[in-house]
Amino acid sequence: MKIDLSGKLALVTGSAAGIGLAIAKGLAGTGASVIVSSRHEANVRDAEAAVRASVPGAQVEGFVGDLSNEAGCAALVKAYPKVDILVNNLGVFKQQDFFEIPDSEWLRFFETNVMSGVRLSRAYADAMAKQGWGRIVFISSESALNIPADMIHYGMTKTAQLAVARGLAKRLAGTGVTVNSVLPGPTLSDGVEAMLKDEVARTGKSAEEVAAAFVREHRSSSIIQRAASVEEVANMVVYVCSTQASATTGAALRVDGGVVDTIA
């Protein structure tokens, strides 16, 4: 299968590193023009350079702004009024006990993880529908189905993304615009590596080894018994953004290594 997205403009939010950057590289590799985004100028410039290094000749631009609020999303839409592909990857996570999570954190997680995607989808979906083609992808998590006891606020936002994506897919029925969710499991992203850095330093093991031990202990239902790579997640996203994935919509597609113990 050859995926060719030449002539398409793709926006990947939260794409300065990790899964988002891998998705940006993957889409650029199909010929799409890509917009990367971050709150920090230096991170955006680094992401642009990383995409160009991965895909020589890639058409990539960067947006600097905070998409966790209405003003930031509006500024992005003003700068780029129309895109063909929207990947709502922006997200935050933090291990925190339920009884210690203040209202402000619940709201911050919801604004960042859910409302950024809601606002951008609302801004871009109509033009996609009018042109008869478009792709919207929400990067959710296996935590949407297996709510983690130590990150309940995070799990709540990931479940909400599934509801938004499914409902929006129905709303856009028959338009040629697909809306899907991709659910990574434990993934060796920059954020996860940062979370594991103390254990890496303490044990002298590699990040991959420590991540695999974490998976075996805390996600014992995993079939692959390791963390996925960011590229493995990006591969699924690139596929659902392709023209070949035209019959896949309203779906929650797992790249969780089998953590979610169900055949459905």
Rank of each mutant, 00 (worst) to 15 (best):
V182K: 06
F110H: 15
R254F: 15
S222D: 06
A194N: 13
Q161V: 04
N113W: 14
E61P: 01
T159L: 11
S206L: 06
C241N: 08
L21V: 07
S206G: 09
D190E: 15
E199S: 13
A47L: 09
S189F: 12
N180I: 13
S141I: 12
A50Q: 13
A163E: 06
G7D: 08
G257F: 06
I147R: 09
G29V: 09
I147E: 03
Q244K: 11
S54H: 15
D66P: 03
W106Y: 14
Q96V: 11
T175N: 07
K205Q: 10
G258Q: 05
A165Y: 12
V238R: 07
G117P: 15
V240A: 04
A234E: 03
S33F: 07
M115C: 08
A75K: 13
V259F: 10
C241I: 10
N235M: 10
V192T: 12
G65F: 08
S141H: 13
E208A: 15
I136L: 10
E61I: 05
D97E: 12
Q244I: 05
A201W: 09
G132M: 04
A10P: 03
G14Y: 11
R171M: 10
S181E: 08
R166S: 14
Y239Q: 06
G176P: 00
D261V: 11
L107G: 00
A16V: 01
G7S: 12
V179D: 00
V192Q: 06
E105P: 02
M1I: 10
T178S: 13
Y124N: 03
A71S: 14
V34H: 11
A16D: 05
A211W: 12
L172N: 03
T248S: 12
N146F: 11
D126I: 10
E208F: 06
L9V: 14
